[in-house]
Amino acid sequence: MKFKNVAATGAVLVTVAIALSACSSSSTTGSSTTAAPSTTAAAEATSAPLDASLTGTITAGGSSAQANAETAWITAYNAQVKGVTVNYDKSQGSGGGITNWLAGSYDFAGSDSPLKADQQTSAQTLCGTGGGLNLPVYLDGVAIIYKLDGVTKLNLSTETLAKIFSLAITTWNDPAIAADNPGVTLPSTAITTVARSDGSGTTQNFTNFLSASAPTVWTAPASNTWPITGNVSSQKGGSGVVQAVGAGSGTIGYADHSAIGDATAATINKVEFSQDAATAAFAAGATTVPTATGDLSQKFDYSKLTGTDVYPIPLVSYQIVCSTYKDAKQAELTKSFIGFVASTTGQKVAAKNAGSAPIPDEMLTKVLASLATVK
């Protein structure tokens, strides 16, 4: 199965018309524009009107999964707020993003996993007693990509996937893989797994899934650092994994689906990734588990992610902000940008350009409510 993702190639398709779609029938006061209420718009999550007079710079970074969405969000946001520069460094990965944010280098961090308990404690030094807020703004899935000569369609069950990545299965013609793919001729090629070398929320999500869904096979811990050593090719960033899989033979790896470009992706339990399947996974299995007042950390119950229309390895990514900023100006700029990201319009921009699934409006409304408490 081939994914064609134009955003992954760096082409941003967002247009001013799309960016301003929430304001197409609007009333204007000063430099701010807000959509006039309608039956359709009433159900949408709308942020505070964007203040086009804002100026300044937002510095952020982290999740490489968010990279294509960030590019599109920044472009769309700057179509309305031209005086604010938003710099997002995707090279850090989720782990580096959180580390730099805790050090005070970033105004917000992008992360595919929420703050851990010790990180939330550390955040109180930066953000006051309220700590940090994990705000879910990006919904996608972990894609399993491979390169195997002569095999253009591949299905992997959860248990087989766990055996491959734990190195219990070492050749492509293993009986377990054959059982998942009746009628497919599989070569005896050795399997090389490709994993992230950096601290990665994508790794955290993937190992969360393996640990919860195949605990008798996957006995390694769920972690944001890859826990298996041996015949593993370690690569920095999702793009590094995708490049290594594509350059190899008999390779298999994992990455956020928006990053995989033209790579061939396996179906998991016969389910192909789609935006609808990711949305169905969020609806079926996501629960809010807050770590602080206003926090919206999500936890998946993978036992509920079954059926042919539910993607079994969803990925929710966050923008992590302070509950209280030391610099009121940076708080204002950050709230403005993330308010756009967490609006229905912002989610449509990401869906069009990164292929992500929009966060449900009910959750976006909660995100905007939490963002409104930031000082």
Rank of each mutant, 00 (worst) to 15 (best):
F3D: 03
A17V: 15
T33Y: 08
A36M: 13
T46W: 07
S47N: 13
P49G: 01
L50S: 13
S63F: 05
A65N: 13
Q80L: 14
G96S: 05
T99V: 02
W101L: 05
F108I: 04
G110S: 10
S111T: 12
S111E: 07
D112S: 15
Q124L: 00
L139P: 14
G141A: 11
A143E: 07
I144R: 08
I144S: 07
L148H: 00
L148M: 01
D149H: 14
D149R: 10
S157N: 04
E159M: 13
I164C: 01
I169T: 10
D174Q: 05
P175I: 10
N181S: 15
T185A: 07
S188H: 02
T189N: 10
T192W: 02
V194T: 14
S197N: 11
T203L: 08
A220I: 06
I228N: 03
S239I: 09
Q243P: 07
G250N: 06
T267P: 12
Q275D: 03
A292M: 00
Q298D: 10
K299D: 04
S303C: 03
P312W: 03
P312F: 12
V316R: 00
I320D: 05
I320W: 00
K326T: 12
Q330A: 09
E332S: 15
I338R: 10
A342R: 03
A351K: 05
T365V: 13
L371N: 04
T373K: 15
